[in-house]
Design a protein around this nucleic acid. Sequence first.
DNA 1: GACACGAGCTGGCTTGAGCCAGTTGCGGTA
DNA 2: TACCGCAACTGGCTCAAGCCAGCTCGTGTC
Lengths: 260, 260
Amino acid sequence: MDEQSGTDRRPPSRRIADDLRASIRSGELASGAKLPSERELAGRYGTARNTAREAISILQGEGLVVAQHGRGVFVRPRTPLMRLGANRYSRQLRSETGLSPFRIEVTKQGRTPKTECRSVTRDKPPADVADRLGLDASTATVIRRENWYYADDEPVQVGVTYIPVDVAGESPLASERTLGKGSIYARFEDLGYRITRIREEISARMPYHEESTGLSMPPGVPVIEVLHTSIDEQHRAFEVTRFVMRGDLNGLDYEMPVED
Amino acid sequence: MDEQSGTDRRPPSRRIADDLRASIRSGELASGAKLPSERELAGRYGTARNTAREAISILQGEGLVVAQHGRGVFVRPRTPLMRLGANRYSRQLRSETGLSPFRIEVTKQGRTPKTECRSVTRDKPPADVADRLGLDASTATVIRRENWYYADDEPVQVGVTYIPVDVAGESPLASERTLGKGSIYARFEDLGYRITRIREEISARMPYHEESTGLSMPPGVPVIEVLHTSIDEQHRAFEVTRFVMRGDLNGLDYEMPVED
DNA sequence: GACACGAGCTGGCTTGAGCCAGTTGCGGTA
DNA sequence: TACCGCAACTGGCTCAAGCCAGCTCGTGTC
């Protein structure tokens, strides 16, 4: 726009990034399209290759593009989000379909779901979890169950469930990786804990280094962290799960009454 | 650890980033602490300054550190999140305190809240909003109200509310920036729309360029986007608001019954 | 005591060069 | 025809140097 007047205070890398961003937004560079190569951008703008590279790295940080070694840089296609709702705890849904809401969501997108329980251990609870369960973080022991969720063999979410030993007792929850029909909430019902309320504390952040490798996340994508607490009729918090999910593939969808 | 065997396949920039990350995690570099300068890191590791710089940029992308021109690079202090719950729509809370939940939350943190209605216009609704309101995106008109929320004069969140013209009529909602006591939901009640259910669709992403400048967001921080729908006793969706909030300052906290 | 100035620190940004490592496709060989 | 291998692309990462701009703090002046 205002090239000639010489008063373009933006550094060249910003300018290139701004131009590319505009092209992406206008649709000129469609979803999945290949950007000009670093060397070509550099030539086109009369800058060093590193400067073009810097521009691309800005867009990567914004989550707009992904680079593929040897192939090029591409506009990140926006895949539809899997929307997880509170209905994932619904008894009816559990019994009707026999499928977990995660499986339903993934199937709906034409992908193949898979879940895997990686470990069942006894541990000390993290402070925030102990707090939600009404336990003393330094003395209490909990069962820790680590679950991974996949779509087409691509990991999309992790859930770590903490159960007080007093609740789990000697039930399958305390030791078995597979929990049989109706899955985990059916087992809690076997023990007399029927989920009637949930609390979900939601935050977003960039993934830890382990998460970004474990979930094989591209740069510029945040995670959604959900700290979930299950509460029964007697207002007992009997289980807490921390979900960490890829922000580019997952979303939450709650519908609830306004109380008071 | 395995320096000598020469088989440290990590590129130097990664190695520096890993070391710094470990120092941060161990607490050796506490929250708010100053990292060694780029030039010092370069010297210490025997690399070029650019390489140390690259390492720091990795940590910036992870949201672990913030750079301040002329001062140094610092471990990002983790400020406690403001937790917004469904109670922000509660009638009782509205009448009891006369304060909005946002104001309560901010005050609780010892900061000074401020809200500002930037504009009230008539517009076409975005497709997703039209869908939630049961309108035709291409023909319908809505009132668009843009609100900014501040803590200590720092912008922390934006909310854009869409109201069908049929709902707003000639009420203050359609034109006034200030809505008087009890704020927006009291005005909806004046019109016969009493909020009984809400739907909240939540996602996380990196901020758009405008958002990151408008909310003056440091790099490596995502936003939480909430698409909120208000529903009355007659199952009418009478208002939709899109909230965009800084992920490092805000969180959500819902407690709800499990239905079915 | 208040203030202006500058030295020496910090990060911000660029250059132009080089080498490495994936990817792709073409052409020649078995 | 099937396959191998190489050339020519792509991004990944680094170097060494330079200039700019913001911050801090000491020094010296008024």
